[in-house]
Design a protein around this nucleic acid. Structure first.
Length: 288
DNA sequence: GTCCAGGATCGGA
DNA sequence: TCCGATCATGGA
């Protein structure tokens, strides 16, 4: 992998295992959009970024080498060898193997804990297009402008300076108070969610569960998508469908779904979950 | 009109 | 501990 800077643009050569569509549209993130040329634009860390793939070369702009090393290398998880993860998981399950045939190059982004927390609070009993719309509106309403047309996701302070009513007007619905309370809790108790990255899974999870509007599933999504915890297995409506339809017999002897999948997939069960989730949605449980 | 969406919370059994 | 109702909103 060779990285170089040219005219406000970073080029990374010999990138293996990075499929833009499978990475940005698998339901882990909500602020990336496909452009007409097949590249993706999104906003993270208060910056608008475009990422394009040509053969096995990745180009991102506007950025520079310093910023790449400080932010994007980690955000796109460029140091992780995904082939190693896939090799570990392959052969363990026929449905996952089937999913891998369709879904290559899916990377788990290392997103910002605060934005991820609010995003998945919003995800409760909601659908992905509307989650995206609500997050965009909240950013427009409360966030700082990053360029002519883009807005950063607001900080906890920025949201706490607003009101529940304003969040309701962003389309958040009954989750308005959860978002507002989370922002206030962060400010009042001087909590830095980035600290949870260094904790072990259960310790970090306990803290997340103290927020109103965060239950088991939302907590596990936050742990997986922003805190580098890969031993969790978020159990949403699709995962429940998967278990009910594909693993009913096999999972019977386990007391809960988590134990079953941890036993089945081991240390990378979080990655397996995300591939299965995306595959199940795309194929309607492998039917088509 | 009903049903569902990357669920969580609450009250009551 | 477990179960059902309820929570806004929009699209199918």
């Amino acid at each position: 992998m060779k990285v170089y800077e040219n005219n406000g643009r970073i080029t990374i050569e010999n990138v293996q295992g990075f499929n833009l569509k499978n990475t940005f549209e698998n339901g882990q993130c909500f602020r990336w959009r496909e452009c007409e040329d097949g590249s993706y634009s999104g906003i993270a860390f208060g910056k608008m970024l475009n990422i394009k793939k040509v053969l096995n070369k990745i180009e991102i702009y506007p950025t520079n080498l310093k910023e790449y090393n400080e932010i994007w290398k980690n955000y796109f998880d460029m140091e992780t060898d995904y082939q190693e993860i896939i090799d570990d998981l392959k052969g363990k399950d026929k449905y996952l193997d089937q999913a891998f045939e369709m879904i290559d190059g899916l990377r788990i982004l290392k997103q910002e804990p605060w934005e991820t927390t609010i995003s998945f609070i919003i995800s409760a009993n909601n659908n992905i297009p509307r989650i995206k719309k609500i997050i965009e509106t909240i950013s427009l309403q409360f966030g700082e402008k990053t360029d002519e047309e883009h807005y950063a996701f607001p900080t906890a302070v920025e949201i706490s300076e607003g009101s529940i009513q304003e969040l309701r007007e962003c389309g958040a619905g009954f989750r308005d108070k959860y978002i507002y309370n989370a922002a206030c809790k962060i400010c009042d108790e001087s909590i830095n969610l980035n600290d949870l990255i260094e904790m072990d899974t259960n310790e970090a999870k306990k803290i997340l569960l103290n927020f109103n509007g965060i239950g088991n599933k939302v907590a596990e999504c936050v742990l997986l998508f922003s805190m580098n915890k890969y031993d969790v297995f978020p159990e949403d409506t699709w995962v429940k469908k998967i278990v009910k339809n594909l693993y009913e017999e096999e999972s019977k002897e386990f007391s809960n779904v988590r134990d079953f999948f941890n036993y089945k997939f081991g240390q990378y069960s979080g990655y397996a979950q995300q591939v299965l989730f995306y595959w199940a949605r795309l194929t309607n449980l492998g039917v088509k």
